[in-house]
Design a protein around this nucleic acid. Sequence first.
DNA 1: CTGTTAGCGCCTTCAG
DNA 2: CTGAAGGCGCTAACAG
Lengths: 336, 336
Amino acid sequence: MKKKLTIQDIADMAGVSKAAVSRYMNDGYISKEKAEKIKTIIEETGYRGNFFAKRLKTKESKLIGVVLPRIDSVTVGKLLSGIYSVMDKNGYQEMFLVSKLSIDKEIRCIKKLYQQGVDGIIVDSVGITEEHLEVIDKLDVPVIFTGQQHQAVNSIKVDDLSAGLLMGRYLRDMGHKKAIFAGVTETDIAVGIDRKNGFYKGFLTDNPEAEIKFMEVGFDFQSAYEKAPEMVKGDFKPTVIAGATDNISLGVLRYLHEKGVRVPEEISLVGFGGYAMGTISYPALTTIEFDYKLLGQKAALGMLELLNGDEITDHGEFTLEFIPRESVADLCSERK
Amino acid sequence: MKKKLTIQDIADMAGVSKAAVSRYMNDGYISKEKAEKIKTIIEETGYRGNFFAKRLKTKESKLIGVVLPRIDSVTVGKLLSGIYSVMDKNGYQEMFLVSKLSIDKEIRCIKKLYQQGVDGIIVDSVGITEEHLEVIDKLDVPVIFTGQQHQAVNSIKVDDLSAGLLMGRYLRDMGHKKAIFAGVTETDIAVGIDRKNGFYKGFLTDNPEAEIKFMEVGFDFQSAYEKAPEMVKGDFKPTVIAGATDNISLGVLRYLHEKGVRVPEEISLVGFGGYAMGTISYPALTTIEFDYKLLGQKAALGMLELLNGDEITDHGEFTLEFIPRESVADLCSERK
DNA sequence: CTGTTAGCGCCTTCAG
DNA sequence: CTGAAGGCGCTAACAG
């Protein structure tokens, strides 16, 4: 542990002015000779400028606030690595706060980040409310939402509707007629509404006699596991269960294993997300992979534009990747 | 988006001095009347003080830097929530950086955090090197390591040796004689050495004719999956495979499933970590749970002490929780 | 290329 | 209880 040095100390030691040291550390508008001297001193002392004094002057923190719904998720990890990859190149650093899937907390996180003096905020939101709008309106830094959408704010998200559509169609084409859609709360427009609507449309279109039963579950493995018994008992007899997220599907799978129901022989199962986790299960889960890293990159790129005073431009389309694995039975080929 | 206000603006609007506003925001050493006035103005304007100016004066950032090995891990999520829970109560906020399991990057993260003006740094390390020591020696803020240990630095970690011991004994008591230990690099003293040594001791002590074969794998699912074939082929014929982390065991399990090897009937499998993930697999994985949240809390408490100029005191013992699930066969009872 | 000179916005004595 | 005044450490003109 050492004592904190100021730019003045360094200047004295090197026999130059504060300004010279400052220049050395920034532009470098300085003579070779002095630069060399300063360099030596700085290395010897391990001097680090005072971050706060610097920011006070420059009015920029070079800090981007990021609000995450949770920390222990692969999805979030990828999103973050996308944000990081572009921000790092541009000299920005992130500061994270976790909303724990709570809308209230999400808003508090935004405020807190703002108070920390970040230059901009990226929110991987779980739902955009009126209160969000109010709060954001008071801020003088740009905010971008991912995961959710609202016309009054900047948002970038994956195409949940198309993902649902794709999956619905795939199951239809595999000859399925009776599906359970294990979805989440409609507060979450992206996952709770879009993904579901897409699935319904894809599955029911041109699929005579097809039926879907909806069941609401939580976001987590456990919640789905607990609801699973309801899904398989009764007269409905689904040939496939579609979880709105991979976690949900995995929770259901766990229950099916315990009951000795074979997947996909007796019932098929699909999810959304494309987490590597889906390969841990047996059988591996058929899913649609969202490119969350790309999403993070786009959000970061958009933020850079906003910071620059520009509008957000489009950064190309998202590719949804359909990942067929082992958890779906082909009912068509079986019949022949 | 609004214009940024200063304390002077607020003072003018409320018809008081800057000092009065400043006091209002801090101690509150001010008359009811003025306080009321100031309160109104601040609420109307949504004024936030300038974080940087404030920190420049007070010399404290109330920021704790945290270096994480990865972001998409349940373990890390728990650790973080532990740190968060105590830091939040004490008015501190965290700032994270991710080392991506690289020792070099870990050091860079520490430096970067330091430059951001944090008051202290907690490092969930993947290995403490000489370079760490050098770098840390130059810092004038306290640093605490978790996950790894070294006598020259402050560190708090779970008891990997005991965990290994516990697991080794358990398998011995279940009648196992031939085990494969799928461990990780010895750079990681905690996981790579302690956990292994504990296991060896526990398994081999008082267990005549017992044998262990060591195989090194990476930390991830995929790496273990790829090495799995080597584990089961050949003459060794293990009755149990112990992965140094749950991820490793899960990777092996995946391979066994594919080969149609039944667990635990034909071979048993155990891991370390206690992630909920272990319940996703089928059969659910027998494991030892480390209380990472508690670890985070202890690290944070220790940091608070250091920040306060005190020594780190011991915050009680870690309880390792043994979680027997379904992946181990009891060879003793089978025989009878 | 260089040193000097002003502040950035806030907190903290210090007299009142 | 209150306002005025003086920096915190740094950067950004400005004259040399």
